[in-house]
Design a protein around this nucleic acid. Structure first.
Length: 597
DNA sequence: CTAGGGTTAG
């Protein structure tokens, strides 16, 4: 050991005679060879000390950056404390590294130390520290830094501006972000990407796509990052036409489909209803990480293709990376939606035993949901009783309540719902479920009671809406909404359609079951739920043979589910609906969910 | 010698 450390530089670093390495010192070369790995870095660090190079700031800076990239912020902090007089390069590298590798708090800590050391921050410093604020959603701090930036004269730096666009978008201040974006004298692709992703991440998919269109009009060439955000917006909206357009564009312009972009395609195609196409993309990729595998498994799961999901999971266990907690959410929810109880139990058990993962709330919810859907209410209840009291979150009880409603165990349902109302009085969903249960059991006075309670507490039921894409344009419908220019035509067509359904055997749910919580909804109930409007519009606007694809923000009601089966018969169309939880493929009078949704 | 902003799965 001692002998090794005392070897000459030449023996230690034989490569230093190679021509391209002449500009770097042997110690620097050794750092490059160690790479972002803690142990090798520590060995080189020891050698640096032995060789007396520890005062060389360039070398220490590189060491710090690599320690940070290795993911060891504690080692990075220790190293920093050993530097007597850090310069601006060192601080900038440190701040950049820690913000880049998600040590946002440390980035801000180092930024403060930099100011305390009286070293002026530069545009480089600011971009990193603003990113750290964005990642932490540190609204106040970020705005303070914004003033500081203006004082320091970096307000017109395009990199700093782009960073602020991201910051304001991430802290939910989209208007401020947009104002900044509009005022930018030169908008790089990155600035456009920041704004588009800002919209998309805040759920403003239409705005994201609108800005993307504008970008193309301006002749700005999108890059793969742009596509990732746009595909995410397509996935949210179910805009498969635009998604396919992006796919064609990417292929014909020779873009490399890397693992991130490939995963975005998988997600977009599965969430737009074409899981076969998603699998094609998956198979064509050249690199698969845990996210790609999880996206594909989850794609199968949300379509109710449990067998395919489990097959893929089996392959992942053999050929793929280690599954993580998110992978297991996908696996367990695939089991839940396909009624694969044994497989689900087995996978849940393997989490801890085989993979050392600790099941969290979301996994428990999947298990309760899985037992519940299958009608195994006792197993669900037993599972809940096994849990630690502090793990009994509202989400667990909500899953149990769903099971009670689905399998008409109203006594237990009322009990669970009342408990939920007590612990989460601000969640309108609980009131809706409880009121539904009362309505089905014919306790209309109780329905009224729940409704009044909800009004008194100032809660509003979430407004349901459905979207459909026709010719790469997305149309939105909500119940009773008449803002669409062709409203009358749509309603008239829907009436005709529903009477044909009745002729074919459709029996509308009784009035009491359809009892709505809010007054103005009542007259529209039954006939005009948003998904029916969107389907009517789709049938009017597309030719036969084209599948109708709808995205709904809430879960479908039982009556719509039954009505749409008949619509699929009388219109002879495939109807694919994504609701809040999963996909329903209606074909020839039956649904892929086998009525367990 | 050392350093640039944006993006992905439930």
């Amino acid at each position: 050991m001692e002998a090794k450390q005392l070897q000459s530089e030449e023996q230690l670093y034989p490569q230093h005679r190679e021509p391209q390495s002449q500009s770097h010192s042997p110690a620097y070369q050794a750092l490059l060879r160690a790479g972002p790995r803690v142990r090798p870095l520590q060995q080189v660090h020891a050698q640096i000390i032995v060789l007396g190079k520890y005062r060389n700031l360039a070398i220490i800076t590189k060491l710090l950056t690599l320690a940070c990239a290795a993911g060891s912020i504690s080692y990075t902090r220790c190293l920093f404390l050993t530097v007597p007089n850090p310069d601006s390069f060192l601080f900038n590298s440190l701040i950049k590294g820690s913000s880049k590798f998600a040590f946002s708090n440390d980035a801000i800590f180092f930024y403060r130390r930099m100011l305390l050391a009286n070293i002026s921050p530069s545009n480089y410093t600011f971009t990193s520290v603003i990113k750290a604020c964005a990642d932490l959603s540190a609204s106040r701090l970020g705005r303070g830094i914004h003033s500081h930036v203006l004082v320091c004269g970096y307000g017109s730096d395009s990199f700093v501006q782009a960073a602020f666009v991201t910051f304001y978008a991430k802290t939910g201040d989209l208007e401020v972000a947009r104002k900044l974006f509009d005022k930018m004298p030169e908008r790089t692709v990155v600035a456009w990407n920041s704004m588009i992703s800002g919209y998309e991440q805040n759920g403003f998919s239409k705005e994201a796509i609108g800005l993307f269109d504008q970008m193309l009009e301006w002749g700005i060439k999108p890059d793969s990052t742009t596509f990732v955000s746009v595909l995410s917006a397509c996935a949210q909206l179910g805009a498969i036409g635009l998604g396919c357009w992006v796919h064609d564009y990417v292929i014909s312009n020779g873009f490399d489909v890397n693992v991130v972009l490939g995963t975005s395609f998988i997600n977009m195609f599965s969430r737009c209803g074409n899981v076969t196409k998603a699998r094609e993309i998956f198979d064509l990729m050249s690199e698969w990480n845990v996210i790609a595998w999880t996206a594909m498994i989850s794609g199968y799961g949300m379509h109710g293709y449990g067998k395919e999901a489990m097959e893929l999971f089996g392959k992942m266990r053999i050929h793929g990376p280690r599954p993580n907690n998110v992978t297991f959410v996908a696996v367990l929810s695939a089991c839940a939606h396909a009624g694969l109880i044994q497989e689900g139990r087995c996978a849940f058990g393997s989490m801890r035993k085989e993979f050392g993962l600790v099941p969290g709330v979301e996994h428990h919810v999947c298990m309760v949901d899985m037992f519940g859907r299958a009608g195994l209410l006792n197993d669900a209840h037993a599972f809940i009783k096994e849990l630690n009291p502090r793990e009994l979150t509202p989400a667990i009880w909500t899953a149990m309540l769903g099971a009670c409603k689905m399998h008409k165990n109203f006594d237990l349902g009322v009990e669970v719902a009342e408990h939920l109302l007590a612990v989460e009085p601000e969640n309108p969903g609980h009131y809706v479920l409880l009121s539904n249960i009362y309505a089905v059991t014919g306790k209309m006075d109780r329905v009224e009671l729940v409704r009044n309670l909800m009004i008194r507490r100032g809660l509003k039921k979430q407004v349901g809406y459905s979207t459909i894409e026709v010719d790469q344009k997305t149309y939105l419908f909500s119940m009773g909404d008449k803002s669409h220019p062709e409203t009358n035509e749509v309603y008239r067509y829907l009436d005709k359609l529903m009477s044909r359904c009745r002729e074919a055997g459709y029996v509308p749910a009784p009035e009491s079951v359809m009892h709505e919580l809010e007054e103005e909804e009542r007259e529209y109930a039954l006939r005009y739920h948003s998904e029916k409007l969107a389907i009517a519009f789709g049938l009017l606007k597309t030719s036969s043979g084209v599948a109708i694809r709808i995205v709904k923000n809430l879960r479908m009601c039982e009556d719509c589910h039954s009505a749409i089966k008949y619509i699929s018969i009388v219109s002879n169309r495939e109807i694919i609906i994504r609701d809040k939880l999963r996909f329903h493929h209606f074909n020839d009078g039956s649904c892929s969910c086998l009525d367990y949704w």
